[in-house]
Write a protein that binds this DNA or RNA. Structure first.
Length: 260
DNA sequence: ATGACTCGTATTACGAGA
């Protein structure tokens, strides 16, 4: 079973690339972030015409997450628990039936948090506390799960080409990294790091200053697995080749392979 | 020499991303 995550940076701007990649990858469930679309404007029919199931949780202009899958979800939940006043569309989860039993899969778009020193940074940290609470609750329920998405956190120095460039950035603040570690310390497994120690493994390259040709990347798109699932991991790959396409997203897909 | 971004929203400028 393949579970993928991809921040596509605008579903309408990326529709051709999305269709091409879905066709090639054939994920069972693909978690999308930054669809930048309200639900009504999501290019649903073009994707459904190729046989995919779609669930969206969008908003006007920015943010927004979606789940694209081969089979329909048994149930869907929109939004991250813990703050009724939060209007940003950043979390969407579904329950699927598999040969190993039910599995819960979430598409998450964790707040960027820049600039540090504005209210955006504490919003990021509060959002991470809410994510940790959700993970605790899901662990207690004992249904295997994948928390997949754009975490906007560089966990370790080796997750950036030039870690020193990110010292003042919300993605690499001690508080952001500590909150990510607290999540890991619940017993979750970072699927990529559990399966490779390969250097210069990145998922994002900025559009500016030739970051892609210089391979000046960072690893911020992660898949965190519940403990039962980590034993069933076959591997993780990064579909880096799509960054070289015409009109690419600045992120590339991460694809997790789980034993059926 | 040395890579000056891209998307969406709303009017060719701005917010947001990272």
């Amino acid at each position: 079973m393949l579970v993928a995550t991809w921040n596509i940076n605008g579903v309408k701007a990326r529709l051709d690339a999305l269709l091409q990649w879905l066709d090639e990858c054939q994920p069972d469930v693909a978690c999308l972030q930054e669809i930048k679309s309200v639900d009504e404007a999501f290019p649903r029919s073009e994707i459904e015409a190729r046989g995919w199931q779609i669930e969206t949780h969008g908003q006007k202009g920015f943010n927004g997450v979606a789940l694209v899958s081969k089979t329909p979800a048994l149930s869907i939940e929109r939004g991250l628990a813990g703050d009724e006043t939060d209007e940003q569309a950043r979390f969407l989860s579904g329950l699927w039936s598999t040969s190993r039993g039910p599995i819960r899969i979430a598409s998450l778009y964790l707040p960027n948090g820049n600039p540090v020193g504005t209210d955006k940074f504490p919003y990021k940290l509060r959002w991470m506390e809410r994510l940790e609470s959700t993970a605790r609750q899901w662990l207690a329920e004992e249904t295997p799960f994948v928390l997949a998405g754009d975490y906007n956190v560089i966990p370790q120095p080796e997750d950036a080409k030039n870690a020193a460039d990110w010292l003042g950035d919300a993605l690499y603040q001690p508080e952001s990294r500590a909150a990510y570690r607290r999540l890991m310390n619940l017993g979750l497994v970072d699927a990529l790091r559990a399966t490779t120690d390969r250097a210069q493994t990145y998922t994002f390259w900025d559009y500016q200053a030739g970051a892609w040709p210089k391979n000046n990347g960072i690893r911020i798109d992660h898949m965190l697995l519940s403990p039962e699932l980590s034993a069933a991991m076959k591997g993780v790959r990064i579909d880096k080749y799509v960054r070289a396409w015409e009109k690419p997203s600045d992120h590339v897909p991460v694809v997790l392979n789980i034993e059926d």
